[in-house]
Design a protein around this nucleic acid. Structure first.
Length: 494
RNA sequence: GCUCCCUUCGUCUAGAGGCCUAGGACACGGCCCUCUCAAGGCUGUAACACCGGUUCGAAUCCGGUAGGGAGCGCCA
């Protein structure tokens, strides 16, 4: 079993003067616990780990921290894996599961015990609860007082836990790549439990053993872990290992500035897929939360990999802003190769009941719709009329745009369209504007009723483009059907 | 309560002592373009938490205050 671990080149401590890719191979890891779905906070952490590894040609490792047997679920694991896959954050190693490594943890615990670096504690939970309550009452920081630290006896009938002998004096210095130097006093730390009374290892311990065994060089995680870091560093030291480089990322808050919770926008990342967001747009949005690269707002995945640097990460928490996400999604829709959008659009259309749309038609729709939609859900909904004729017409708009004169124009137009030579946007445009001119009407006065006839409403891509995609037969058909219906509705002029 | 962290427009951010009359982006308003809706262009409103100090000069450095957050589990 390898004992090697990351050598601690301190990087990123000097802003704008960060280390170039170092000779040792960068290894990062994302280590979610499967007690719930993967939400944007987790995704952002995963993204930064992934980007850092990719940027430096290193490895990105996925590890499932499922030591909490009570709360971990297979569905959550599935869900996390699906989310990562959708986002395109591919792991070079893993997913590893901590439950598969219990023998290894046991081995390290025995080692620490044998070396006198850990000890058995026979306190009961009740005893510890009492201790905590007393300390709180006295206004002290609640912590274990080390009462079994130097005892060699045992207490019959009590299954002991194993605690790590944290140094009593001195300080622990965390050299954090985003926060800089953070100093903790050992006197503030207590002897943490590394093995429960049922023999299972605990989180802080497993993390350390795993990061050591997996030779993780950069631990990039949420800054809610900053307070755990000194303990982990002490543990690592007791194991004869130099600490990795730590980078603690600021939290992401809900849109209201409050902590992300189930009630405040903490939804599965897969929900963004369902709502019609592109993963690259979500990632683009997320990468700009707590990180920036000058004034650049739009990043492709490649742009991110090229530009990402831990030393540009900032320290303060940021609020999630759905409007900006929507804007970025539209930017990505507008700039992506149309082929990129075909499958996700098809999927959204299918959810609305449109089956078997052909690829070429989808691409044409994408070209005319992408700059008028924030999401693929919107694009699909606004493109339904390309697949089925309107079943009704917006009544208010009909009253506004349709008159007997207009009905006559549309009737003529239907005939002209039938005879038109080349069925393409430029020819369609001149045909319609010609018809408008001859009637002394503006283009809009003709285009709007045509739109109403084709789509049922007054919002669509440019009328020539809409006709072009709909095709001659379908267009003429819809126009005639509308003309017939409207001719009955409108009373003839006296 | 104790320890640690954070603080520039409503939001995301630029800014590493003079380039700052504080820049960009989202959102919001106005104008332009225009067959609808958009997209796009131009433009407007809007911020250095506060108080001291260092300095010829501070958003930037130092100290304090206030506010916010995290951690203090046989959770992760």
């Amino acid at each position: 079993m390898s004992r090697a671990c990351g050598s601690g080149t301190l990087l990123g401590l000097n802003k704008k003067r960060s280390a170039r890719p170092q000779s040792m191979s960068v290894r990062t890891r994302f280590a979610p616990s499967p007690t719930g779905f993967l939400h944007i906070g987790g995704l952002r952490t995963a993204l930064f780990c992934w980007l850092y590894a990719r940027r430096h040609g290193g490895q990105f490792i996925l590890r499932i921290e499922d030591t909490d047997l009570e709360r971990s679920t297979p569905e959550a694991i599935r869900q996390i894996l699906d989310g990562m896959e959708w986002a395109g954050l591919d792991a070079d190693e893993g997913p590893f599961r901590q439950t598969e490594r219990f023998a290894r943890y046991r081995e390290v615990i025995e080692l620490l015990l044998a070396q006198g670096k850990a000890y058995r504690c026979y306190c009961t939970k009740e005893e510890l609860d009492r201790l905590r309550a007393e300390q709180m009452a006295r206004g002290e920081k609640p912590r274990y007082d080390g009462r079994w630290r130097d005892r060699v006896d045992s207490r019959p009938g009590v299954q002991p836990v194993v605690r790590f002998k944290n140094p009593l004096h001195g300080e622990v210095v965390v050299e954090d790549a985003v926060h800089g130097r953070v100093v903790f006093q050992n006197s503030e730390l207590d002897d943490l439990i590394i093995s429960r009374s049922d023999g299972t290892p605990t989180y802080n311990f497993c993390v350390v053993v795993d990061d050591m065994d997996m030779r993780i060089t950069h631990v990039i995680r949420g800054d809610d872990h900053l307070n755990n870091t000194p303990r982990q560093q002490n543990l690592l030291e007791a194991l004869g290992c130099k600490p990795p480089i730590y980078a603690h990322l600021p939290m992401i808050l809900g849109a209201d500035g409050a902590k992300l919770s189930k009630r405040h926008g903490a939804v599965s990342v897969l929900q963004y897929r369902d709502e019609g967001y592109l993963p690259e747009a979500l990632l683009n949005y997320l990468v700009r939360l707590g990180w920036s690269h000058g004034d650049q707002e739009f990043f492709t995945i490649d742009d991110m990999v090229r530009s990402f640097d831990i030393s540009d990460v900032n320290k303060s928490a940021s609020a999630f802003n759905p409007e900006k996400l929507a804007w970025l999604n539209q930017q990505h829709l507008m700039r992506a190769p149309p082929e990129r959008l075909a499958e996700p659009l098809r999927w959204q259309l299918e959810r609305l009941g449109v089956v078997g749309a052909d690829e070429a038609k989808l691409l044409r729709i994408i070209m005319v719709q992408r700059e008028r939609c924030k999401t693929l859900v919107e694009m699909a909904a606004q493109s339904l009329f390309f697949f089925s004729a309107p079943t009704s017409y917006d009544e208010k708009q009909v009253r506004k745009h349709v008159s007997t004169a207009v009905v006559d124009i549309l009737r003529d137009l239907a005939g002209a369209l039938e005879r038109l030579g080349e069925w393409a946007a430029p020819a369609l445009h001149s045909l319609i504007s010609g018809a408008a001119d001859r009637s002394g009407l503006s283009l809009g006065k003709v285009a709007q009723p045509v739109r109403l006839a084709l789509c049922g409403g007054t919002v669509s891509p440019p009328i020539d483009a809409t006709l072009a995609i709909l095709g001659r037969e379908e267009s003429v058909d819809r126009l005639r059907r509308a003309v017939n219906e409207w001719a009955l509705m409108i009373p003839p002029l006296p």
